[in-house]
Simulated assay, not measured.
Amino acid sequence: MMKYRLLLSFSRLLVLSVVLLSISSCGFQLRGSQQFPEHIQLVEVRSLSAHDPQARALAERLPVYQLGYTRAAAPADIANTVIIELRPENLDRRLLSVFRTGQVAEYELIYRVDYRLTFPGQEPVNAVVEVLREYQDDPDQVLAKSRELDLILDEMRAEAADRIIRLMASQASVPAVAVN
């Protein structure tokens, strides 16, 4: 019985080691573990409004990726600053289902952010992020559903910010193309 337990624990350890080695050898990285080049340390976020909620979401998410945030980079920092220019956000709803009475029961929320990403010494890249969520509407609980919609929208902004930063990380690793 003792040999069986020892053999079982050894085989589990062996299987775990093989799985970990295969995952690490294929280049797998956890989300949020993107590495930025050494020269990129600061992100300037520009938006039309000083109190843009998407700009706030980016400001909250950038420290997770060990990046600094600024609303206007100093001239001395411009060589290591990535610029994100946010355009106005857009929230649309698409009807998914209705009650027998004809009232809307469920929506699909579509949150869209257009932005321009500019790396030092490179041409700007225009991009779009779209985040989708399902939202169930209940006409009997208007106040609670209004608060729920605000929370869902905040989550969608945070997810959009993460996607923007991940795209920025993937674009940062692409070498700059020399223009003659």
Results as ranks from 00 to 15, higher is better:
S17Y: 15
G32N: 04
A72Y: 07
L14Y: 05
S97A: 07
V64N: 06
E89A: 06
C26L: 07
A178K: 15
Q35I: 08
E159T: 14
A72G: 12
V113Y: 01
L149F: 13
M156F: 08
Q171G: 07
Q136H: 10
L151M: 14
I164G: 00
G121C: 01
S49T: 05
T101I: 04
P37L: 08
E130K: 15
E130F: 02
E134F: 13
M168N: 00
A161C: 00
K145W: 02
P139L: 13
Q35L: 11
V174D: 00
R94D: 14
A176K: 13
T101S: 12
L149N: 12
R133Q: 14
E123M: 07
K145F: 01
K3S: 11
R112F: 05
A76R: 04
K3T: 08
S22K: 08
L8K: 07
P37I: 10
Q29D: 04
D52A: 09
A160E: 07
S9T: 15
S47Q: 04
V15G: 13
R46G: 01
R100Y: 08
I78T: 13
Q122D: 12
R166N: 11
P53A: 13
R61G: 01
E159F: 11
G32W: 02
L149A: 13
T70I: 10
P53R: 03
F10L: 04
S49Y: 05
E85D: 11
R87K: 14
Y65K: 00
N90K: 13
R94Y: 12
Q34A: 03
L151F: 14
A57E: 02
Y115D: 10
P175I: 01
L143E: 09
R61P: 02
S49N: 13
A73Y: 03
D114Y: 08
E106T: 12
F119I: 04
A105I: 05
L6A: 14
S9L: 15
S17G: 15
L7T: 13
R12T: 12
R46E: 00
D114E: 11
A158W: 00
I23T: 14
F10R: 03
Y115V: 04
E155T: 10
R116C: 00
M168G: 00
S9G: 10
D154V: 10
V43A: 04
F36W: 10
S47V: 03
Q35D: 06
E155S: 10
E44Y: 05
V128E: 12
D154P: 02
S170W: 08
